[in-house]
Design a protein around this nucleic acid. Sequence first.
DNA 1: CGCATAACTTGACACTGTCAAGACTGCCGC
DNA 2: GCGGCAGTCTTGACAGTGTCAAGTTATGCG
Lengths: 190, 190
Amino acid sequence: MTDRYHHGDLRRALIDAAVEAIAESGPSALSLRAVAKGAGVSHAAPAHHFGDKAGLLTAVAAEGYDRFADALDRAWEATGDFIEVGIAYVRFAIDNKAYFETMFRPELLHEDDPDLARAEARSRAALIRGSGEPKPGPGGEMPEFNANALGAWSLVHGFAGLLMAGNFPPSVAADPEGALREIAKHVRFG
Amino acid sequence: MTDRYHHGDLRRALIDAAVEAIAESGPSALSLRAVAKGAGVSHAAPAHHFGDKAGLLTAVAAEGYDRFADALDRAWEATGDFIEVGIAYVRFAIDNKAYFETMFRPELLHEDDPDLARAEARSRAALIRGSGEPKPGPGGEMPEFNANALGAWSLVHGFAGLLMAGNFPPSVAADPEGALREIAKHVRFG
DNA sequence: CGCATAACTTGACACTGTCAAGACTGCCGC
DNA sequence: GCGGCAGTCTTGACAGTGTCAAGTTATGCG
């Protein structure tokens, strides 16, 4: 199973190897050849499945958005509290650094990829749901973000970004979830 | 002045060329050789001034932090309103996309560079001042961010990041400053 | 004027992503 | 059972990249 010519599920193996590499040195430093070596195949094998380096990163981002949507949905359904959705947002960024960093780097992706668009839409929907906004209207149209949801989204996204870029003081970096809950106590929307 | 062996101010010219290139395709796609060609020098000239590719990006980031601190200070001194400092934060990100994107990508920089650290500290100080926090105490120690300042910082930073990554609906992207002011009306700190 | 030193160039190296061409394998219809 | 075919992966090549070592040129200082 390991060394046959047809790998079996090379696509899966390449994505896993890519995620691992991204976790270590970021998405922009990803080397296709290193990923291929990590999966035990020749240097040009990834191109066959993803076409491109951007194609591989797009696959990673799409998978990331799917997992992200799952995490947000879970948090909302477990608690019904939009604060907990915000916590889940930041927790996902911490626990899935590689996915998160890839997702929000559009210049490295194929933004027109249908899989990516679908997964992005799932995340957006989960976010709208989790921010307590009205569901899609009878015509099926998605509601625009209102100012509250936009502010909350910006807050958790910025918190995650600053945290991961190392811009917070050590006390915050040591217990990010606690810090975020503290912020939530002091900030009121509406 | 243009084609002599000693350029005169090659360092300046290289940074300018780098900023221009970053503005077009992001900091991770920067090519030292392209920058050198843009400045009209040989491909190895940049290494002499910056040592490294990361060294050039570090110089760009340091300059960015300095300009950023200036912008925040100007906003605070002109208005004394911490909301206007937040607006200035986002406006800087929009108007100086290349600098801003480079500043918050630590994996591309030499984080131990003293110039970078100094400029970062300036920005941090401007941010603390602009968030209405107490000045450094008599011992000279810097105050920690409290929950309000941390929340406001996260909010404007996340807003800028999501805006520049293209994650906002068109109505927001068309008038980001208006959208941010709308958010500010609905969010209360304290 | 001469020389040390800084500024820049030249050439080379290993590495990268991408492409074209070929080799191998499993499967489907006969 | 068997032939061919489509999909999977490999091999080899190419231009481009960052970095290093050695050489060339200019500037400023004694």
